[in-house]
Amino acid sequence: MSTAAAAAEAGQQHATAEAAAAAVPPAAVAAAAAPPFDFAACIPRFLHWVDFCNSGAAAAAADEFLLLTVGGSAVGFLKPSFAERLLQFPDVFRRDGGGLALHPSLATQQQRTAAVAGVLEVLRGEGLIEGWRNELYPAVRAFHDEPAFLIERAAAPHFGIKAYGVHINGYVTLPDGSKELWVARRSRSKPTWPGKLDHIAAGGQPHGLGCMENVVKECEEEASIPTELAARATAVGAVSYTSLQPAGLKRDVLYCFDLELPADFAPRPQDGEVEEFMRMPAWRVAEIMTTSDEYKENCNLVIIDFFFRHGYLTPDMPGYLELLRGLKSGDMS
């Protein structure tokens, strides 16, 4: 590439980032200079997001759902009405104490996967399972267990299986040491959370793919981040929650990654899932989370974790330990 062409491309990247920031509605415009900002005052609202994402915890604890077991090991939670529908497939499901179990004749993972897939095709045809993704999730008690069976992602909350994902905080460190986060606005045509603010990249953790492989894949697909740059992402922990949805229990563990990006790099939408990217000071992101519901709800937890780890939230702030504990409210196995 010629020097002139390189300069032109760099200028266009900078212009893209500036244009994206200018396109943000007033509720999400970052001021040029950071005003004094009280992160301690954000904690009550941050606790609200923890409670919101854990709307299913009480229902699970109160035995409002039926256990789904395989070989005596619990892998899911079923709404009673959904369990009754599954019992209409007696070659696949049967009663087991107060819950349901896969039929013992389904002795292998492959047999169970095929049998459950056949049931799901019927339920999909009835309109009971919506948002089909053609992506398989493992039904497991814990992340490193061998899956009891594999199941279509769209059916995960119906079966109350644990689902895992990777969420990436893309950020830039300024010369003064302050940090700015790259924020994505989800496409308004997406069937889930259209137009909401999101991380630079994130995705469910499918079967057969390593977490770091998934990080690199999602960064490239959603934000056009080159492999060599995405591979710098660092695993920094996880958050978990149990959410109550119309389909059932959404039991999620989100693996958190930090990706420090060069100041002159600007992500670009690629796969149609993101409408635009904006770079915002950390304080402005916290302000949006505190004063609006612009963010996809579970993203708030991952960003709160970022604030803890980068020193924006400190032990002298009231509610610090309660908030820290709340980020891991779900089953972390």
Rank of each mutant, 00 (worst) to 15 (best):
G210Y: 05
A61K: 14
G311H: 07
H144Y: 15
T192G: 09
R85K: 15
F39A: 04
E18V: 05
M317H: 03
M280D: 08
E121Q: 13
S187M: 02
T291C: 02
V75Q: 00
V183Y: 07
S2G: 13
E180S: 12
A114F: 02
A19F: 06
V183Q: 07
I151L: 08
V274T: 09
I151V: 10
D96I: 09
T314E: 06
A101S: 03
G311Q: 06
R133Q: 15
E275T: 12
I129G: 01
D331V: 15
K79T: 14
Q110N: 07
G330Y: 10
A114D: 14
A21R: 11
L301H: 13
P206T: 12
A282Y: 14
L324G: 09
N298T: 14
Y255M: 07
A115K: 08
I304T: 15
T234W: 04
R45C: 04
Q88W: 08
A15Y: 13
L301M: 05
G170L: 01
G204F: 04
S105H: 10
Q205R: 06
W49D: 08
A20L: 10
D145P: 07
A8K: 15
C256G: 08
F159W: 06
A201Q: 05
R95W: 04
Q245H: 04
G98E: 15
F39V: 03
A155V: 12
E126A: 04
S189H: 08
G319N: 02
V302Q: 15
A247L: 12
Q13C: 03
A6P: 06
A19H: 13
P194I: 09
A163K: 02
L323D: 00
A4S: 10
E213V: 08
L174W: 11
F265H: 12
A27T: 14
L209E: 10
C211E: 15
P318D: 14
T234Y: 09
G203L: 01
A101W: 03
R124E: 09
N169K: 07
V70S: 00
I151P: 02
T242P: 13
F39C: 09
C42D: 11
D198C: 01
E9W: 07
A163R: 05
H103G: 08
E180I: 03
P267S: 07
E322L: 09
P246S: 00
A139Y: 00
P138F: 02
L321D: 15
G272H: 07
Y164L: 02
G170Y: 01
A20M: 09
D145H: 08
L128F: 11
I288F: 06
G311T: 11
H310P: 03
L229C: 03
F37T: 08
E213T: 09
